[in-house]
């Protein structure tokens, strides 16, 4: 089910940004360049961003403004990226994060 809002009386929902393709857990997903990664995932029905360390419980959007880290995922190999405040770029590789994520060499 697509959750994109196509009509609104007050807001202009026409999209200015170009459509790009990103991969999420290996699958291609259509997104708008520049939108938060989390918005693109939600629009495509993807609601789980990561799993917790101890109990492997799913987490998804909670605060939406970069405060709670429930939306953290691995983006282009880097873990703990807050997808609610990180913009989509064409070709981005997004992965569901399991636990803490591996440390990335600088």
């Amino acid at each position: 089910m697509c959750l994109r809002m196509e009509h609104h009386v007050v807001l202009d929902t026409a999209h200015q940004a170009p459509t790009v393709e990103i991969t999420v857990d290996g699958r291609p997903v259509s997104a708008y360049e520049g939108e938060p990664i989390l918005a693109a995932l939600l629009a495509n029905g993807i609601r789980v961003n990561r799993y917790t360390v101890k109990r492997h419980e799913p987490r998804g959007l909670f605060c939406g403004i970069g405060q709670c880290t429930d939306c953290a995922m691995i983006v282009d190999g880097i873990p703990n990226v807050r997808t609610c405040i990180t913009s989509v770029r064409a070709g981005m590789v997004v992965e569901t994060q399991d636990g803490l994520g591996k440390k990335v060499a600088p």
Partner: peptide, 22 residues
């Protein structure tokens, strides 16, 4: 903590800024 439970502000951000329904 179930995905789908969120702050009201998060729901508002999604619809009014990102044009995506939560």
């Amino acid at each position: 903590t179930t995905p789908g439970v969120m702050g009201a502000g998060a729901a508002q951000t999604m619809v009014n800024v990102n044009h995506v329904k939560p």
